[in-house]
């Protein structure tokens, strides 16, 4: 059990590279309990890599990652499964299992991870689908028959099915039209509040980031170069942040790219 002053998630000086390419170069961030943090940054800056390091899908070469004060980088498989049981994840393209019907996708973590009876897991899955605005009839469908927005909703239902302490959202609105993006954002805010979870979202969609964030952090060249409450981002005093949030072609980010 952690008190409210202990970060729910702590990343300290995390480094990760692929061959000669350094992706994370000393990434540090604290996320407090029940806080919704959005990490913004351009494509290829290491946002997804950072999430995969927290989930244990990738191992950082250097640095520490803690969840509820427990170091997680060198966990055994069994301990990792226990930690991951506290986490829900919405993948960029939802990553639904094609071979299973929608309800079983939502109930997967309950049946396989928590060894719940299929009937009970089915009922919970239908309830979670309703929570994201999908009817019970959708539960019988195959993921291949769903639209992009429905896939995201099913992915969201799967992420919250186990009532996780922590939820990660990887580019939750990518590939959606603005209206559906707004709907998904509202669902994320509602679901995170209902579950009482801590959330980390990564996106480069600024309207979406403003809707779902309590706090924002900007990732650039593998490091957090600014973080603060969402209301302060327009007055960050950081040229990189200003350029990014205004989507301007002129600024330090472009200039540095040209130098390469």
């Amino acid at each position: 059990m952690t008190d409210s002053k202990t970060p729910k998630i702590r990343l300290k000086d995390v480094h990760k590279s692929f061959g000669p390419k350094q992706i994370l170069r000393g990434f540090s961030l604290d996320v407090m309990p029940q806080e919704s943090v959005v990490i913004i940054g351009g494509s290829g800056t290491g946002k997804s890599v950072m999430l995969k390091c927290i989930l244990g899908l990738l191992s950082p070469e250097q640095g520490e990652i803690e969840i509820d004060g427990q170091p997680t980088v060198h966990l055994s498989n069994a301990d990792r499964e226990e930690v991951n049981a506290k986490i829900g994840m919405l993948f960029q393209n939802a990553a639904l299992f094609d071979s299973l019907p929608v309800w079983e996708n939502v109930a997967f973590g309950l049946i396989q991870g928590k060894r719940m009876k299929r009937k009970l897991a089915h009922d919970i899955a239908i309830e979670k689908l309703a929570q994201v605005g999908l009817g019970a009839d959708v539960g019988k469908m195959s993921p291949a028959d769903l639209s992009g927005g429905m896939r995201k909703r099913v992915g969201l239902a799967r992420a919250i099915a186990g009532d996780p302490d922590i939820i990660f959202f990887d580019e939750p609105t990518t590939g959606l039209d603005p209206i559906m993006g707004h709907v998904i954002d509202n669902l994320i805010v509602k679901c995170v509040k209902e579950v009482g979870a801590t959330a980390i979202s990564i996106t480069h969609d600024m309207p979406s980031a403003r809707r779902i964030a309590d706090r924002m952090a900007m990732l650039y060249q593998g490091k957090v170069i600014w973080h603060g409450p969402v209301g302060q981002i327009d007055n960050s005093g950081n040229d990189y942040v200003d350029q990014f949030i205004h989507g301007s072609a002129d600024g330090p980010i472009q200039m540095e790219l040209l130098k390469l």
Binding site: G88, F91, D98, G113
Partner: peptide, 22 residues
């Protein structure tokens, strides 16, 4: 391979299921 590139194998791990076993 399709499961790998569409992150379904990563999703298995986040759902506390060992992909080697499953």
């Amino acid at each position: 391979g399709t499961m790998r590139v569409t992150e379904q194998i990563d999703a298995l791990e986040t759902l506390s299921t060992n992909p080697m076993k499953y």
